[in-house]
């Protein structure tokens, strides 16, 4: 069965209405912000770590960001700056092995 390009299996248009790419249609777990420290292990163990689920999570995060900063009627400069600073951080980390050769001090 092909699952690429399909809606999530839990999505039912009659119950959920129009498809929202930013929404998780599965059974909601405790939000990560409300998880106690001693429950983090079991919380992580409950996560679906298949490639599809990871891609889905990234996709939802991307659409959440889109809906919040890019799609509003009077979106400001925030999404552009997000991309600028995000790519700065990304490429800094990517180039870090080369950048670290430019250190000025031997001892810290």
């Amino acid at each position: 069965m092909v699952t690429i390009g399909q809606y999530p299996p839990e999505y039912d248009p009659k119950i959920h209405g129009p498809y929202d790419p930013a929404r998780f249609y599965g059974k909601p777990d405790t939000p990560f912000g409300q998880v106690k420290l001693n429950e983090v292990g079991s919380w992580l163990a409950r996560r679906n770590k298949s490639p599809q689920a990871i891609v889905g999570a990234i996709s939802r995060a991307y659409w959440r960001w889109q809906h919040k900063y890019v799609q509003p009627k009077r979106a400001g400069i925030a999404p552009f700056l997000h991309i600028v600073f995000g790519s700065m951080t990304f490429f800094y980390i990517l180039n870090y092995p080369r950048i670290s050769h430019h250190k000025n001090y031997k001892y810290h």
């Binding site: 119950i15 209405g17 509003p72 400001g76 400069i77 997000h82 600073f85």
Partner: peptide, 16 residues
């Protein structure tokens, strides 16, 4: 269900 509505832009400080 409730139909999704267009959101207001998220609040940011220092531009982003």
């Amino acid at each position: 269900f409730q139909r999704p509505v267009r959101q207001e832009p998220g609040k940011v400080r220092h531009g982003f």
